[in-house]
Amino acid sequence: MIIEDELAALTAPAPAGFADSVYARWVEVDGPVGPLYVAFTDRGISYVCPTSWMDDDRDRFLDSFRTRFGRPLRPAVKAPAGLAGAIRSGRGSGLTYDLRSVGDFDRAVLAKTLEIPPGEVRPYAWIAREIGHPAAVRAAGSALGRNPVPILIPCHRVVRSDGATGNYGFGPQLKIDLLHAEQVNLDETRALGRRGVHYLASDTTGIFCYPSCTHARRITPAHRVELANLTAATAGGYRPCRHCRPA
């Protein structure tokens, strides 16, 4: 065979599904407090935005995605598997995410945030400590502010240590609405914060928790001990809860 023919035979079709490695797809789905735009690639979910944040203008959403990710976007036939269930349960840890646009530090912050169960909140300082950068509290807050997949990776469950809900990429009111929808008792959290109470302990189990921890909520009023700080917890002989890991 002459070499020109052999060379011509070396053309290769692009692999199956090649177009899906270029395009992202998008859907509109019901979220916990209003509809959401959700964009995803062949690697996973890459962008979530409440439709209200875009004034329900689909073209604004499409343009903001294309600008932020430099990727063309087409309508999807169906939503990614498991999305509706994850939104209903408030647990996004079973979904796959495309976080290629996210740096290592931010990724660690987001992975940690994914562990916070629905109905509970953690302080920014908790995230920083859990990922091994206890001094990087502010950086953790900034990373959460850049979260490309809010609500599914529940950055709304990260609040200030003084019990205030703190800032949110889509405005503080949406953060409050999301936490209310998950039955977080914000009035109590704020009231405790105002009194300088950061932990709740049980005098029967000898364990202390963050106030929103599922175990703290089971402590009966008669056995509930309010603690201002870790020194008080240590002095009282309490050990940190293994679920919410307050220390």
Binding site: A12, P13, A14, P15, F18, A19, P72
Partner: peptide
């Protein structure tokens, strides 16, 4: 999309 369809084989 037509650009991708038309040139994906050449580019790949």
């Amino acid at each position: 999309p037509d650009v991708v369809a038309a040139y994906q084989q050449a580019v790949f």
